[in-house]
């Protein structure tokens, strides 16, 4: 897509909007279309930034639960973690988060933002509307355990919280699900929080990152 086209995309063009789109717009971010919504592609030059915070809220995700949930996802060709509070990548780039013995969430592949299915495709499972109930933030780069230690009482250092681990805990006094993404170079924490509290947590994370020079960024930080 050309630069001219990019600059014409504004989040209000779409019916679907991230709860954070105004912050991005106010910061002069560039958007591109993703899952019928505007996804931040760039927040300006972030090449020298050690830690980035990226809003993936408009990326596709869905959840299923119930006694059949794990088997149904596996039958659909997705990789399902062996134990609760773990995540694995599937071959199609989607990440499966296992939150309990009977509940998994599926995050769309990061670059495309899309999922190959939806919870409605799993008729014998109960749907979880995590696309709407939760905002999805990606914290990426260096000092992540130190940054999170300012907000969260769970030890997220590499030895206690390796790649593929999930912590369902309290971050800055709201509930959140932190996933340490597997199979990806560098450290990446996906943070899922109450979508109504997205603006609050976004501010808290940027504040905590400031000490380390962390900044908001777009998808171009990753690709």
């Amino acid at each position: 897509m050309s630069d001219v086209m990019k600059s014409t995309i504004t989040p209000e063009t779409y019916l679907v909007r991230s709860p954070l789109y105004r912050l991005h717009k106010a910061a002069g971010a560039h958007f591109d279309e993703c899952s019928s919504a505007a996804q931040v592609t760039s927040y300006g030059d972030r090449s020298a930034v050690s830690t980035a915070l990226i809003d993936l809220s408009v990326n596709h995700r869905f959840g299923v639960r119930g006694p059949n949930a794990l088997a149904a996802l596996a039958a659909a060709g997705l990789s399902v973690p062996d134990k609760p509070n773990q995540c694995v990548n599937s071959s199609n780039g989607e990440t499966v988060l296992r939150l309990s013995n009977t509940e998994c969430w599926v995050l769309g592949a990061m670059e495309s933002g899309a999922c190959s299915a939806d919870s409605s495709a799993f008729a014998d499972c109960y749907p979880v509307y995590c696309q709407d109930s939760h905002a999805c933030l990606l914290l990426s780069g260096e000092h992540l355990p130190d940054i999170m230690a300012k907000l969260c009482g769970v030890d997220l250092s590499e030895h206690a919280f390796p790649k593929g681990a999930i912590a369902q805990t309290s971050v800055a006094r709201i509930n959140a699900i932190i996933s340490h993404l597997p199979d990806r170079e560098g450290t990446h924490f996906v943070i899922l929080c109450d979508s109504a509290a997205a603006e609050y947590l976004w501010g808290c994370l940027l504040d905590a990152m400031g000490e380390f020079g962390g900044q908001a960024a777009g998808l171009d930080y990753l690709f």
Binding site: P84, N85, G153, V154, A167, T169, S170
Partner: peptide, 10 residues
């Protein structure tokens, strides 16, 4: 039993 050792405030 699901999430391990946590602060009682959780």
């Amino acid at each position: 039993p699901l999430n391990g050792l946590r602060n009682i405030s959780e």
